[in-house]
Design a binder for these strands. Structure first.
Length: 334
DNA sequence: AAAGCTTGCAACCGCGCATCG
DNA sequence: CCGATGCGCGGTTGCAAGCTT
């Protein structure tokens, strides 16, 4: 007896998602919250597999996702976490709350693997990306440190489990997500994912929409003309589509606002925080999305390894480890 | 300018785990 | 306990955009 398909394969649409589908999915999740993916296609009328809906949401539409432009700090974290955890992308992604496992996986496969391979094949000293391949740390040292880290992590985990206290939540509030300097000013934003924090995603969605407007309304006009034609999309577009710089806040918030005016459902009380692009709203929808973040961060106790990885204030030891020879990391990996 | 090649990423697939009745 | 079902994860693929020749 084989496993039945996750959904009826007949009539299931595959391939890239259209803006219309995105909007339908976001609207539905806005109303019902994420989860119960099985029912999403039937309730929304989307001709998509439930898995496809979940994937689209978690990898693209989910609030708080940062895309592209991995910082050096993030790169280093990924490299070291990969060395520690292996290809457990979901686990690695839990340490980078704004990144999806798919994004990290792709970035690893397309960028970091090559970078490390390059380093391994004899680029001495400082490379162009600023990674220092300090010869002072031998492979043996690296392995010893790695083993020590793993031991410490295990110990911390067992301690945390034996404590059996519900303080992991409060601990996680102290999670320092600001080790990326560019993100330090928006720490609160990282901690609480309102739907507004996905404004960038929605803005992108809308930009795509405007690039490929429905034929019925656009009728051969270019995207800019179409944009002005469609009054319901009062969006200030960014100069470069796909740019995910953090200063898009106000712009994307506008796009987000427009999105809701487009949907015109329960959105009239949504207000935009101009400073950080957050949408501050007391709507139930927002509370739904606040719950939808990286659950691991909220439930996993703050272990030593997490402190090591995330606490900027941990000082030199952390820096030493981060700056440890990537050649050695590469040697361990390949 | 055009063809071929490379790269990056969104999405799919299949498997394993968790939960529920 | 066991089977059915749903969800999540990691590996892989396909395609579009960018680059090179």
């Amino acid at each position: 007896m084989g496993r039945p398909p996750c959904c009826d394969k007949i009539g299931v649409k595959k391939g890239p998602w259209t803006p219309e589908e995105d909007i339908i999915l976001v609207s539905y999740i806005q109303e019902h919250g994420p989860g119960n993916w099985r029912s999403v296609p039937t309730n929304t009328g989307l001709l998509r597999c439930s898995k496809s809906c979940r994937l689209r949401w978690t990898n693209y539409l989910r609030p708080g996702i940062k895309r592209g432009n991995f910082t050096e700090q993030e790169e280093k974290m990924i490299i070291h976490l990969q060395a520690l955890l292996g290809n457990r992308w979901a686990a690695i992604a839990s340490y980078l709350p704004q990144r999806t496992d798919n994004d990290i996986k792709n970035y690893w496969n397309t960028h970091l693997k090559k970078k490390l391979k390059k380093l391994q094949t004899g680029v001495d000293g400082e490379n162009q990306d600023g990674f220092s391949s300090s010869q002072s740390v031998s492979k043996g040292q690296w392995e010893r440190r790695l083993q020590t880290d793993i031991r410490m992590a295990k110990q911390a985990l067992s301690e945390a489990l034996s404590l059996d206290k519900p303080n992991s939540l409060t601990d996680s509030k102290d999670f320092n997500l600001s080790n990326n300097p560019s993100q330090s000013q928006s720490q609160s934003q990282s901690q609480t994912y309102t739907y507004a924090s996905s404004a960038e995603n929605i803005s992108r969605l809308l930009q795509n929409w405007m690039k490929n407007p429905p034929k019925s309304s656009g009728g051969g006009t270019n995207s800019a003309e179409t944009m002005t034609d469609q009054n319901s999309f009062n969006v200030t577009t960014t100069t470069t589509a796909g740019s995910s710089s953090s200063d898009e806040g106000a712009t994307t918030a506008e796009g987000f606002d427009s999105f809701f005016s487009f949907n015109s459902c329960n959105s009239s009380d949504a207000s935009v925080d101009e400073q950080n692009g957050n949408l501050s709203s007391a709507t139930p929808e927002n509370s739904v999305f606040q719950d939808e973040s990286k659950p691991n961060l909220e439930t996993v106790p703050l272990t030593l390894i997490e402190k090591w990885l995330l606490d900027d204030a941990s000082g030199q030891a952390h820096e030493d480890l981060i700056n440890m020879s990537l050649e050695d990391s590469a040697a361990a990996l390949f």
